[in-house]
Design a protein around this nucleic acid. Structure first.
Lengths: 346, 346
DNA sequence: GCTGCCTAGTAAAACGTTTTACTATACCGT
DNA sequence: ACGGTATAGTAAAACGTTTTACTAGGCAGC
């Protein structure tokens, strides 16, 4: 069958028409330069032989690769992979490929990935790891790369980003606990400077203070979150603070490890302890009892991320203003948060 | 800062050395052609200015893009995204990018994706959708693309693939049920011709027959799996067969919908019903009680997939034999499968 | 009959590599 | 002094596009 890849030169030769003309037609720039007949002839031939432009040659000539890299913290995390999927769909419709990789929240690794991709992709959609502020600034302001930051952001310099309303999300959670009758509300977070972690904590504290409640706080190290060490820490925390009647977990992984502890200790949810976690995840809905969450609006986040990025890419160098979106999370109330007073009647 | 991207020509001019020489040095082909001093000089300069070859130009010249597309059924599915993550890591170390997309098990969509990527990537790692046999054969034998098939395979023509030992996996599950004292073992599957679905069913039937047990079977339509309609079907199935004491779910999504039904009907696991599902998923481990599974060896699958693909790409056109791997699943016994006789004592 | 301006199209350079075929010099044995 | 060969390097073509600047011819206006 068709063995050799066909090029514009081949078409040119076959049809006795210059390469330039072919190119115009292929790129829909023939409108007022080339006659209808020639256009038709070329288009028909292209159709017939199934010609497809060589993208390397296009990239070489135009300097645009039509691909974007998505550097997630962990592409196998359901949150990031859901975002990835929806972005890919939109990107594809706009003629862009998405390459993915995982930073593992590791600065060195991220830098390595970055240098590999620099010059090879048109844009970076990235969840910067811890301590990446300066590297990111360099990437944007020195290397002049198109960068969309996701999930977390920095205050000390301007950049494009799409993030959640973390502060308000935490407030909503605390309010939810309060309204269900809880008065000893704990926060389990991560010892990190990343904006969502900081803001979730601040939102918690803010509302606790407003309500004049006592604060109970536990912070795990980043690398303990998914480990038995992390479980032990949570376990201790609960033992040392027996009057805690509710916990807000700052991330889904934290909550999952928390649930392991709670199950082990045979603590009853929501009777003994009410639970809210950040981030939706199917295990929360299926858990017994179902766990309440502050859900991130995944579709909207993905849309803003990719559309924002495409918009920036399209706007050439017209120094458009920075693209920043802060989307609200939604408190989804499930059985893990049933009102205290209702418990006796159920 | 460094505004303009630097090229071999620039280095050539700056150092008064021919482009050819630069190229040899950059590609480590200078060994016995270029003097140590020149090599050193060029390498130092490259280091200093941070030169990086333009990958479009390389692709154009060599005809290799150094990228692979991973067409998963659904990249947001934890199984596929876990595979994706591990493949990416290995690919990266070998100088390859991975582009991803989701077929949604939709033939038209997959064909569209395929034509986009044809010629643009060096290889396809793909989970072909339903009814894709002929399209896949064409892709491999007419278009002569490098293709690695994943998760499912076809019997009627040779191709590279990596799949699970589905038949044996189902056997293990049935045996597990049997050994825990169950005698009325049901199979909930999907009405599909895809090899894993067919083989899981066959494995179930085979072992049921061997053990001389009655078969109870339910097949959902593919698009009902995650829906309330699917739940209703499972619910009916259970009502119509009240003596079923165990269910093997052919996929994790099936099991998840099944668990919803079971929770709704307040059926007790494992007292009233033992459960095993194909595919590991964190919700299974965290569920109360934890759900037993036939786990796929994710790391091994990912390694075989990407290493196999890289191997084929490296072996040029030497018509190597087809790369086929069939990896065993592991029955992970959790509380959903406790022995019947033990129940009274617990 | 000339200028100017359309229309429909083309020639050729450029993008940044890789690779083949070549050259210039030196040295060595006879 | 000569051929042979090893060493160190280079010139130039090719990959397949896009795009700028051009042309050939026709026609309108005067």
């Amino acid at each position: 069958m068709k063995r050799k890849k066909i090029s514009m030169k081949d078409i040119s030769k076959e049809l006795g028409i210059s390469i330039t003309t072919i190119s115009f037609i292929v790129n829909n720039k023939a409108e007022n330069k080339i006659s209808k007949e020639v256009i038709k002839k070329v288009e028909d031939y292209i159709q017939k032989v199934g010609y497809k432009p060589n993208s390397s040659a296009q990239s070489l000539r135009t300097g645009k690769s039509k691909s974007i890299v998505f550097m997630a913290e962990d592409i196998s995390d359901p949150f990031f992979s859901a975002i990835a999927k929806q972005m890919e769909e939109i990107a594809f419709k706009n003629g862009y490929n998405i390459i993915y990789c995982s930073t593992e929240n590791d600065r060195e690794r991220t830098l390595e990935l970055l240098t590999l991709f620099k010059g090879q992709v048109d844009a970076f959609i990235i969840t910067p790891p811890e301590n990446f502020e300066n590297d990111l600034r360099k990437l944007i302001y020195e290397d002049q790369q198109t960068v969309m930051v996701f999930d977390r952001y920095f205050k000390n310099f301007k950049h494009n980003y799409v993030v959640l309303e973390n502060f308000e999300g935490a407030q909503k959670a605390v309010t939810g606990f309060y309204e269900s009758g809880r008065r000893n509300i704990a926060f389990v977070g991560i010892d990190s400077q990343l904006s969502p972690l900081v803001e979730r904590h601040e939102g918690y504290l803010n509302m606790i203070n407003k309500l004049q409640l006592p604060a109970y706080e536990l912070f795990l190290k980043f690398d303990q979150v998914k480990t038995p060490t992390g479980m032990a820490a949570i376990s201790n925390f609960l033992e040392e603070n027996p009057n805690i009647d509710s916990i807000l977990f700052a991330t889904n992984n934290l909550a999952i490890n928390g649930l392991r502890v709670i199950r082990e200790k045979q603590i009853k949810i929501p009777e003994d302890l009410a639970i809210i976690s950040f981030d939706e995840r199917d295990v929360f809905e299926l858990y017994s009892p179902p766990i309440s969450v502050i859900a991130q609006p995944i579709s909207e986040l993905a849309k803003e991320l990719i559309n924002g990025t495409l918009e920036i890419l399209a706007s050439k160098k017209e120094k458009m203003h920075f693209f920043t979106k802060i989307l609200p999370g939604e408190l989804i109330v499930r059985d893990s948060l049933h009102k205290v007073k209702n418990l006796s009647s159920s």
